[in-house]
Amino acid sequence: MVFSLAIAGIFISNYVVVQFLGICPFLGLSKKVDSALGMGVAVTFVMVLASLITYPIYTYIMLPNGIEYLEIIVFIFVIASLVQILEMVIRKMSPSLYKAMGVYLPLITTNCAILGVAEINLTYELVTGVFSAALNGLFSGIGFTLAIVILAGLREKIDKLPTPKHMRGFPISMITAGIMAMAFYVFTFITM
């Protein structure tokens, strides 16, 4: 199960290039490999924590009490508070970690990959409990980091090339992402 979750999360249904989750930081932030890696690690960390918290809240509190229609409001509040608390804790505990990761934390609340993993955990057939939900968060985060780092590396090179005026910026990044998506499409032929 761990293996299936890993292969599915990182390659087959990669959050960025296959499921279109977290495109905004993917296009907006990934111009340098270092900052892309920092963002990826921060997102992965929050994804695991968000899965660990939202899955039990939904399964053991909201579902038995028949208030599952509040999921959107509850999830976004859990994620927003989680990010806020995390920022304060990291700032107090480890200034060096805060320097590396802290700047990305406020951006994470509105990253759709985080709310996406919380929502996907509820319907994903491989997620059967809190542990597998956290694993799904971990591997999806690794997949996100992989995609964002690859694109950052490509863009570092592309920015130096002569591109037509109207293709600069977003269009050329989209085309690059499209070529990446083609490469990732090969993984859909894997069956487990």
């Binding site: 290039v17 989209m174 499209g178 998506a181």
Partner: peptide, 13 residues
């Protein structure tokens, strides 16, 4: 998905 990225990119351009 690749078609989505490329079509959207061409649209913006």
């Amino acid at each position: 998905p690749a078609g989505a990225f490329m079509t959207y990119g061409m649209f913006i351009a």
